[in-house]
Write a protein that binds this DNA or RNA. Structure first.
Length: 275
DNA sequence: ATTGAGACCTGTCGGC
DNA sequence: TGCCGACAGGTCTCAA
């Protein structure tokens, strides 16, 4: 499920339950996610209050009253389930074999982390560690922030010989884009996924027209996706992703969506209107 | 320094 | 029905 829009939707759904909540208990059922669990994980969480729940790229960051930050990455298949558990009558949902961590809150609510593929990650960092931890310090600009503009994208792509699509998946270039929205944004910007990334910038790194279109497309695609995923809106999935063989959804384009592999991942694009 | 390939792990789907 | 390969929304590590 998780690229930036999905992670943001998860953040929004969890925030009302977690913000200012006290953690009453933590049950780690499977500690073997992508990285080993922090030592004393439970001891450092129980009794703490969650001050804020934020997001950076595809990471969720829960700031605790102790000053530590709990970092969660959903990997490919991670999700959270909320059991509001109105006091007493335990209407707790059935346990699943991929329920790996259960956070019990003082309110009686339970927040369960489920992740079949176990590519997810949990870290517990002190403020000093947070400031320099590689998973965060290597991330590029947040695409929905005002810092992200055509100049920033062009600078990041300058001199890059990889394809534009592969560059968009690089979290150092745009933090939070994944395989679906990279394809979607390139289609919206009418840019070929196979172009060299460097072609959106001049030799000195200044933005070309393509960089402006791509920046706007990324912001628009992500913003719409957050609305859709958050359930504010129901629209029908994606314009090109997983639509091989369908007609191009662009008005006045008679192309057909194709699929090709780049860096081991599927890219969906319209050969007629993406240049 | 970049870049691509492979690895991690489980589930699902289509074809035979 | 059962088996098998291909594939899946992510990221890390390693070798060229």
């Amino acid at each position: 499920m998780p690229e930036l829009p999905e992670v943001e939707a998860v953040r929004r759904s969890l925030a009302p339950f977690l913000t200012r909540a006290r953690i009453a208990d933590v049950d780690v059922r499977r500690p073997d996610l992508r990285a080993p669990f922090p030592t004393a994980f439970r001891a450092r969480l129980v009794g703490r209050t969650v001050r804020a729940l934020d997001r950076r790229a595809k990471y969720l960051l829960a700031t605790l009253s102790s000053g530590d930050t709990l970092i969660v990455h959903l990997g490919m298949s991670g999700s959270f389930r909320i059991d509001p558990a109105a006091g007493g009558a335990k209407a707790v949902s059935a346990a699943d074999r991929h329920d790996h961590v259960v956070f019990s809150l003082a309110s009686g609510a339970a927040i369960t982390f489920n992740d079949p593929r176990r590519f997810g990650l949990m870290l517990l960092l002190t403020p000093a560690q947070l400031a320099r931890h590689p998973v965060l310090s290597r991330l590029g600009v947040e695409p929905l922030s005002s810092e992200f503009d055509a100049a920033a994208l062009a600078r990041a792509c300058r001199g890059r010989k990889t394809s534009l699509k592969v560059a968009l998946l690089d979290q150092r270039i745009v933090a939070g884009l994944g395989n679906i929205y990279a394809s979607e944004a390139l289609h919206a910007a009418r840019l070929s996924p196979f172009r060299r990334a460097s072609t959106i910038a001049t030799a000195s790194g200044a933005p070309r027209e393509a960089a402006r279109r791509l920046t706007a497309a990324i912001k628009q695609v992500l913003t719409k996706a957050i609305d859709r995923v958050s359930g504010n809106y129901r629209s029908s999935r994606f314009r090109v992703y997983d639509r091989e063989g369908d007609p191009c959804p662009r008005r006045n384009c008679s192309g057909v969506i194709r699929r090709r592999t780049q860096a081991g991942r599927s890219t969906f694009y319209c050969p007629a209107c993406q240049r």
